[in-house]
Design a protein around this nucleic acid. Structure first.
Length: 273
DNA sequence: CGGTGGACCTGCTGGC
DNA sequence: TGCCAGCAGGTCCACC
C-alpha cells in the first residue's frame, strides 16, 4: 500500500499528537514481522519521551529522547493509529505503545511485510535498511537533470528505474504508474532512449503526483489510513492505476494492463510512447 | 549491468 | 453455498 505520500500523510497526522508524549508501556504480540522483533530494544523505549517525527523513503521515523529512533515500515498492509487505551486488541495488532494522555499507538499488519525496530538516531543513515537508499524526490525537488544523471549509462525499462529505491525512493507501483501516464511515457521505454525533455516532464510528473497525493491524504485501496484512522482520497484521482479496460482521461483510448517484473502496470497505448 | 521469478504472509474477489 | 485461483501498495534474494 503505502508509498511516500501515505507515509508523509501518516507522519503529519501523528506528529502533533505524538511530539512531547511519553511512552509508558510497550506491548509486543508477535515474534516477527518481516524480520524478528527485537524485544529488548523495543521495550527499552518505555519511560522515554517522543521528540519529533520524520520520514526517510517509506520509513516513518519516531525520534525518541536519548538518541534512539523507532523506525516503522508499513510493508503492504500496515496501519499505524492512535486510539484510546481501552480499545480492544485487534486481529494482527503486533505492537503497541501506551502513551501518557490515555492513548495507545498501535501497529497492525496482516501480511507482516512491515518492520519495526530501534536504531541510533545518529547512526540511522548507516543502518543496513538506509545505507543504500537513493534520493528523496521532494526535498530537494527532483529535476529532469537529476533523473538523467541517475539513468546515465543504464538500460532497462523506465518504470523499473523509477521504482529502484537505490536511485530514487518513495515511488512505488501506484505512483510510478501514474507519473508515467501523466508524462506520456510508456513504462517499457528504455531509459537509454529518454532525452532531456522527457526527463524533465517525468520529473515534474513525479513531483506533481506525489505532492497532489499528499494533499489528498494519500491513496486508500484497502488498508491505508492516517494516524487518526482517516482514509485518503487520491484513489479517486488515479488516472491509470487499476483502470485497465477503462478510457484514458486524456485521449479516450482504452487503458491496458501489462505485467512488468511481476508487477501490474497500467498504461495508455496511445498517449504513452 | 539488468531482468525475471520466487519468497515472505493474509485477505479479498471473481469465476465456476 | 463452497472452493480455488489470482491478485494486492514492498522488499530481498537467487539465478540467468
Amino acid at each position: 500500500m503505502p508509498e511516500l505520500p501515505e507515509i508523509e500523510v501518516l507522519k503529519r497526522s501523528l506528529e502533533p499528537r505524538l511530539a512531547g508524549r511519553r511512552i509508558l508501556e510497550v506491548r509486543i504480540h508477535a515474534p516477527a514481522l518481516r524480520e524478528p522483533l527485537d524485544r529488548r530494544s523495543l521495550m527499552s523505549l518505555a519511560g522515554r519521551r517522543v521528540e519529533r517525527l520524520g520520514r526517510r523513503s517509506k520509513y516513518l521515523l519516531v525520534e525518541i529522547e536519548q538518541g534512539a529512533t523507532l523506525v516503522i515500515h508499513l510493508g503492504m498492509s500496515g496501519r499505524l493509529t492512535l486510539a484510546p487505551v481501552a480499545t480492544e486488541l485487534e486481529a494482527h495488532e503486533h505492537l503497541s505503545f501506551r502513551l501518557d494522555g490515555g492513548e495507545r499507538l498501535r501497529l497492525r499488519d496482516p501480511r507482516r511485510f512491515g518492520l519495526a525496530f530501534v536504531a541510533s538516531t545518529d547512526g540511522l543513515e548507516a543502518d543496513r535498511h538506509f545505507r543504500h537508499l537513493g534520493a528523496e524526490p521532494l526535498s530537494p525537488v527532483l529535476t529532469g537533470g537529476q533523473l538523467a544523471a541517475l539513468a546515465h549509462g543504464r538500460r532497462g525499462p523506465v518504470k523499473s528505474f523509477l521504482m529502484d529505491g537505490r536511485l530514487l525512493v518513495g515511488v512505488g507501483n501506484i505512483y510510478a504508474t501514474e507519473a508515467l501516464h501523466r508524462a506520456g511515457i510508456h513504462p517499457s521505454r528504455s531509459v537509454a532512449r529518454i532525452g532531456a525533455e522527457r526527463w524533465q516532464r517525468l520529473a515534474e510528473a513525479v513531483v506533481g503526483i506525489l505532492e497532489r497525493a499528499i494533499e489528498e491524504g494519500g491513496t486508500t485501496l484497502n488498508d491505508f489510513t492516517d494516524g487518526a484512522g482517516q482514509e485518503g482520497d487520491f484513489q479517486g484521482s488515479l488516472a491509470a492505476y487499476g483502470r485497465a479496460g477503462e478510457p484514458c482521461l486524456t485521449c479516450g483510448s482504452t487503458l491496458r494492463r501489462m505485467v512488468q517484473s511481476g508487477r501490474s502496470t497500467f498504461y495508455c497505448p496511445r498517449c504513452q510512447r
